[in-house]
Design a binder for these strands. Sequence first.
DNA 1: ATGCCGGGTGGAACCCGA
Length: 262
Amino acid sequence: MKIATWNINGIKARHDNVIAWLKEANPDIACLQEIKSVDEAFPRSEIEALGYNLETHGQKGFNGVALLSKLPFDEVNRGLPVLDGDADDQARFIEGVFTVGDKPLRVVSLYLPNGNPVDTEKFPYKLSWMARLEAWARDRLALEEPLILAGDYNVIPEPEDCHDPKEWEGDALFRPESRAAFRSLLNLGFTEALRNTTDAPETYTFWDYQAGAWQKNNGIRIDHLLLSPEAANRLSGVSVDKHTRAWEKPSDHVPVWVEYAA
DNA sequence: ATGCCGGGTGGAACCCGA
């Protein structure tokens, strides 16, 4: 089965591209980010007509995540838990639980905060969100179940994950603190799907709309799928649907997906 | 190039993104 993640940059603007991609890629589970829609306004009918169950965690104007699945949802959890006394009103996390074979499969669609500019409260918000994610993931890994954390991490893990590392020096996506937090998450025992299956250079998932970034292949790799050991054992392939970046009215991100042995 | 494009809100100009 195929499990994909894609930051679509607005469901209203990207609806037709999403439908075209679902028909072409036919993922069993799709994790979407930046739906930029409240739940009540999300256009469901054409997606459901393709055979998908759909769960959203949206908000007005910004952020928002969704899970599409041909399998029925056994459970849905919206929002990354906050630590004591904290609060978070940004819709960036949704978890679905499915049954694959006779075992549970947990899949998360997450949209990690950007964190720029780094001299504002946005950067500590990013780092605290990452700390919350790590705490949540530690608990889930203790279940020793197949778990896939998929989404837009807004982290460039290594210099080879961007076209021009100098351009990203000091940026929240490439700050040592962000990269360290991502490594710390991985070190809980996750397998990052793409880098564990290919060393192909210039493998990116985002190209800015500006300054001809796409034409120059000035991209970055920030959309990742992290697999628990039980999920990684079933990993049989990874791919990036780069061609969607050349479509009319493209998202600035492209889909990434894993082949998962059911 | 701390906004060059693009989406969303709201109905012009501004916020946000990476």
